[in-house]
């Protein structure tokens, strides 16, 4: 079931990156190719390119984030952009200023690139309609987190070659995860076989029609997998709301060596972070030889550089 990946797009024809939905496989591959180049740049002593020189990038985070925000900031700076971080506490937004007002205010400051994270699904799309610059979705509610899916794909491709045909298990809180949604879309677009593994309370309604194979038993779900991707379980969901307790969750759905042994011997372990060791993943696995978790962070910067660079080609030059 390997998809034809020989036809490569040489451009990214969209003004924004709002989600994986709507992207062609060739466009995804184009971004991954750009990211491979960005990895090389990032590993040099001289890490700067001039693609975004003179451009203003605003990172607008309505929801707290350390790594994603830092990743976008470094990516923008390596491309020569002037990067500004804006953390907007959601409480002050609720006090009166609507998201649209915020968008109009920022738009008036004439940024070229706007990186947005928001706690509500659809908020980034809404904002993108109201501004003239390019917008990157850095996570909107439980909807999408496209750069995470791209960095995951980049990490996989650099280790396993073609993603088409890989058997990939996404495990844990699928229901509330924008990472899971974006990954399901992207990995399916590239022809991978995607499984989800979770207790039924953490599966979204309609999951059987989302293009995945569904497992509630982790050992069965990991059987023969090339990649095991773990998801974070939010603290407020651990104690009775969706699963009874941390120890029960870890026993049945936490990734330890024993469960990992059901996957292929050369299976690789991923996690978008931040991790809860002892909840969804055992420390021995998270820090073990099959883990790609730290590399994912490096790939995150590269993918964000690729995305910013791709969007830069659409910025007006006069």
């Amino acid at each position: 079931m390997t998809k034809d990946t020989t036809h490569r797009s040489t451009s990214y024809p969209h003004r924004h990156l709002l989600g994986i939905e709507g992207l062609q496989p060739s466009e995804i591959l184009h971004l991954l190719d750009l990211a491979d180049e960005a990895v090389e740049v990032s590993r040099q002593v001289e890490k700067q390119k001039a693609v975004l020189r003179g451009r203003t990038q605003i990172n607008l985070f309505f929801e707290a984030s350390t790594r994603t925000q830092a990743s976008f900031e470094i990516a923008g700076k390596r491309l020569g952009a002037d990067v500004m971080n804006m953390a907007v506490a959601s409480s002050s937004v609720k006090k009166g200023e609507t998201l649209i007002d915020t968008a109009a205010t920022l738009n008036a400051m004439r940024p070229d690139l706007l990186v947005v994270r928001h706690q509500s699904a659809g908020a980034v799309q809404l904002l993108a309609r109201k501004v003239e610059c390019s917008v990157v979705n850095a996570g909107d509610g439980q909807h999408e987190h496209p750069t995470q899916a791209l960095l995951d794909a980049l990490t996989m491709r650099r280790h396993k070659g073609d993603i088409g045909g890989l058997r990939i298990a996404i495990c844990g809180d699928i229901r509330h995860s924008r990472v899971a949604r974006s990954n399901i879309l992207l990995l399916n677009a590239l022809g991978a076989r995607v499984r989800v593994v979770a207790p039924s309370t953490l599966l979204p309604s309609g999951i059987h029609n989302m293009g995945v194979d569904v497992f509630t038993n982790m050992r069965e779900g990991l059987e023969g997998c090339d990649i095991v991707m773990m998801l974070r379980l939010q603290r407020e969901r651990m104690s009775g709301a969706f699963v009874p307790s941390v120890r029960e969750y870890f026993k049945y759905h936490g990734l330890d060596k024993e469960k990992l042994s059901y996957a292929k011997p050369d299976a690789l372990v991923m996690h978008p972070g931040p991790m809860n060791r002892g909840v969804e993943i055992a420390a021995e696995v998270a820090d073990g030889p099959q883990s790609l978790i730290k590399e994912q962070v490096e790939m995150g910067v590269a993918v964000r550089m690729a995305v910013l660079e791709a969007l830069a080609t659409h910025l007006p030059t006069k």
Partner: peptide
């Protein structure tokens, strides 16, 4: 409405 549409949109569903 709870279901596939809501799940893809990442919106909470009302069954």
């Amino acid at each position: 409405n709870a279901g596939l549409r809501a799940s893809w949109l990442g919106l909470g569903g009302i069954p």
